[in-house]
Structure formats: C-alpha cells, structure tokens
Write a protein that binds this DNA or RNA. Structure first.
Lengths: 109, 109
DNA sequence: CTACACGTGTCGCTAAACTATATATGTAGA
DNA sequence: TCTACATATATAGTTTAGCGACACGTGTAG
C-alpha cells in the first residue's frame, strides 16, 4: 500500500517523468502508474502534480504530445521526449546523483 | 569550488540541519560551514534559507537556542536538538532513505 | 582605510506540489 | 438498475520552501 504522505521532493518529479517517457510514448495516467509500480508503491504522483508538470515540460519544449487511442480503447495524450528533453534528462540525472551523494555524505558522516 | 546553482531539494534542508546539530550545540553560521565541508563543497546553504529554517525548527520545538560566545570570541546563537527534534530527525532520515531508494529504482530501471 | 571573515536577520519573489474538484466513459458486481 | 471503480485529463486555489538581495554589526589583516 502506498504511503499516505508521499510528498515528492521538489525538482525530482520532472526527472521521474522524463525517465519514464524515455523508452517510448506514454500517456499521463500510464506514467503515474508506471512510477508507482517501479518504485514499489512508494512514489505516488498526484494528478494535481502530474498534469501541470506535463504541461510545464511541454511548454519548455522538452516533450511533445499527440492524442491517440490507448490500450483500453479511450483517447489519451501520448507524450514523447524531444531532443532537448533527452539532453535535459541527462543533465538532471547528473544533478540528482551529485546531490544525493552529497546528502549521503552529510547524513552518514 | 561550490557550484553556482546549488538548489537544495525542498524538504531536505531540515534533515541536514537536524543531523548537523545532533552531535552537539552549533550556531547557524557554523552549521552552514560544516554542511559545505562534509558535502565536499556541493551543498551550500544560503542565509536566506538557513535562518528562516532554523527559526521554523525552533518554533516547532525541534531545536532550542542559547546565546553564547563562539570560538572567535563573538556572540552567536547556539542551537541544540530537543527530544522531539531527535525523534523528528530519525523519522525524516527514514523518509529520506525510503524516498531516495524509490527514486533510484525508477531511475535505474 | 579597505577588504574580508564572522555572524544574524528580513523582505519579497518564484515556483513547485498538494487538495479538492470537475468532467467523461466503460465495466463489473450486487 | 444502480453503484462503485478504473481509466483519463484538467484546473483553481492554497501553502510553503528556498532563493536573491539586502541590512546590520564586529574584529582583524593588509
């Protein structure tokens, strides 16, 4: 069961989204599900965080969207990474690693 | 050299502060220095983040302060953990570990 | 006398994430 | 049939953290 207070750390949501889209086009709902799954039910992305984040990334030109029929037969907006998005992803990944390492240094000191 | 855009992740600052104070009373300026040092110059806590955070923690009863002469001979405000602060620290540490692990799962998938 | 390290603090801003809500459809079960 | 739930997108309004830019004051080194 997902924890009540999921409280995403600011700045990591974009990274998570970018990473999840990377292998191929996905729609918002599916992205959230996949993150929940691969994080072993720890990371729960709220709709109120998810869709604004997706719109934000699209406005920045990091992802593009296209309406398509989903596996369940409904229409859904499929997002894919742009070239800029791929670049941004690797930058942010680097930043996360650097940051997480630094935190560990302080915490485990 | 510290990176320009240090951008602390929201929510981790309190944890860092609590951890740094844990071994014994420290003043704000010293805390920031120590974090910079132990993180190998990666984590730079800005004054505009540091002091409000310290006040916040004190208001919540997680730390207490006392004016004392510092090693340099000036007056400085020394903060120490309260019992509630210690408890909060272990809770937040747990949360961070759980969270960082989950992120890694998604990122390294 | 100037610059820098020490030390605390605030104001105003931005932006991220959350809660709650709205909308719409299909399907399973009582 | 009615209800509940999964699928799917979206926004309005709120909170709050962290940041940049200041302001204040002292002591010391050059």
């Amino acid at each position: 069961m997902p924890q009540k207070k999921s409280d995403l750390l600011q700045g990591t949501l974009d990274l998570l989204l970018l990473k999840t889209i990377a292998p191929g086009p996905m729609h918002g709902y599916g992205i959230a599900q996949r993150i929940l799954l691969t994080s072993k039910e720890v990371l729960q992305v709220q709709q109120g965080s998810l869709y604004p984040a997706l719109h934000r990334l699209e406005r920045k030109g990091l992802i593009t969207s296209k309406w398509k029929e989903s596996e369940s037969g409904r229409m859904a907006k499929y997002y894919s990474l742009t070239a800029a998005g791929k670049k941004q992803f690797s930058t942010e990944l680097e930043h996360w690693r650097r940051y997480a390492t630094a935190i560990s240094l302080v915490l485990e000191a």
